[in-house]
Nucleic acid binder design. Structure first.
Lengths: 203, 203
DNA sequence: GTGTCAACTGGACTCGCGGTACAGTCGGGA
DNA sequence: TCCCGACTGTACCGCGAGTCCAGTTGACAC
């Protein structure tokens, strides 16, 4: 009946919510400790400084995001074995997921950290980099499978095409945040989906 | 022989360079006044606070960016009257321009401000929003002209397609920053270009 | 030549926040 | 019983934003 979540996780939960809402700099340690109902000393017991917090948050975020992609495309795979259709279904699911988020999606931490750069140390920046490279690899692999069966109508660099998935999502989230609209990201994904349909259309 | 640029402009120049390099928060007023060789008092004489600086920077940045697009597509227009080819040439020019920037492009202030949100007041956020809406309108107009001559192979929302130009650029710049690579943005634009070629291909 | 005004300089001060240091408390195993 | 990990609480430092304000300097006005 231990319903008390461990403190470190609680700090991360609260910090994540706050950071996604208003950015890392704008989130003070003061309000995190208030939310988590611990003392400032308690915070620094778990994280030596704000950078350590950022690193832990990013690690967790990337893990969740990857698990989410795993799950999404696994479900897509169950619905259709063909790699192209699997990709198309996966993107549709992703778009739907983004749309269903009532608050209009957390917004990707990657972009946020990328643009605050000097605030973070090498460790954080590297994590960020590795996450994107991981997605590149994942999507590149899927596009390789696809192009074995469907010859692309125009020559494309598969790494760049893999990056485009991340890029379209990131870009969509930026637009969404800046415009205060709520479905730009999912719209952009759907547009990217029609791109793939055209690119890999059977002759 | 007055080679001294007026102080306000000098502040903006220095602030812009610093902000693009390391982000808004990480840029202190101290270093701006040092760079501009004025006193702290002098800074606050021109800008009542950091938010006013942000607003002025955004205004100037958006103006420059718009002038750049005007020029780019005017040149494209000179090379080819057809709206589709004009668009394709313009995007090519844009990609080349991004590639030629030795430091790997300033990186768009829009994304940066979008993700730091609460740091800025309503004025700054609104400027940001208006800039993106302006680009939507500009590109939507171009796509309307195109689709009058070339029926799209798949149904697309032209507003969303207009947003995709901004989104692809923004997303590409995010990747570029995070990966520490230098040509992701231009690569993404070229990929988007092949999308348009496929989408508006004559039957 | 005097006045006025914009464009500053320079210094003193407040406040919030990140970060340090460290002494003390409290509950749960060995 | 003792130890240890997980804290609490407090005092303190430095930095950067922002305020206040008194004083200087140079240009132009009359």
């Amino acid at each position: 009946m231990k319903e008390k979540i461990d403190t470190r996780t609680r700090i991360l939960d609260i910090a994540e919510a706050a950071v996604l809402e208003k950015g890392f700099e704008a989130t003070s340690i003061e309000e995190i400790v208030a939310g988590a109902e611990i003392s400032r000393g308690g915070f620094f017991y778990h994280f030596k400084d704000k950078n350590a917090l950022a690193r832990a948050m990013l690690e967790r975020y990337i893990e969740v995001e990857n698990a989410l992609y795993d799950d999404l495309f696994a479900r897509a795979r169950e619905l259709n074995d063909d790699p192209l259709h699997c990709m198309l279904i996966g993107l549709k699911l992703l778009a739907e997921m983004l749309e269903e988020m009532p608050t209009g999606h957390p917004g990707c931490v990657i972009a946020s950290t990328a643009y605050q750069d000097r605030l973070f140390d090498e460790g954080v920046r590297n994590l960020n980099r590795q996450a994107i490279l991981g997605w590149r690899k994942r999507f590149r692999g899927m596009f390789e499978d696809i192009s074995e069966l469907y010859e692309p109508r125009e020559p494309v660099n598969l790494d760049a095409l893999g990056d485009m998935v991340s890029g379209v999502v990131e870009g969509g989230l930026v637009l969404q945040r800046a415009l205060r609209e709520h479905n730009n990201a999912s719209e952009q994904i759907m547009l990217f989906r029609t791109y793939l349909k055209l690119l890999f259309a059977p002759r």
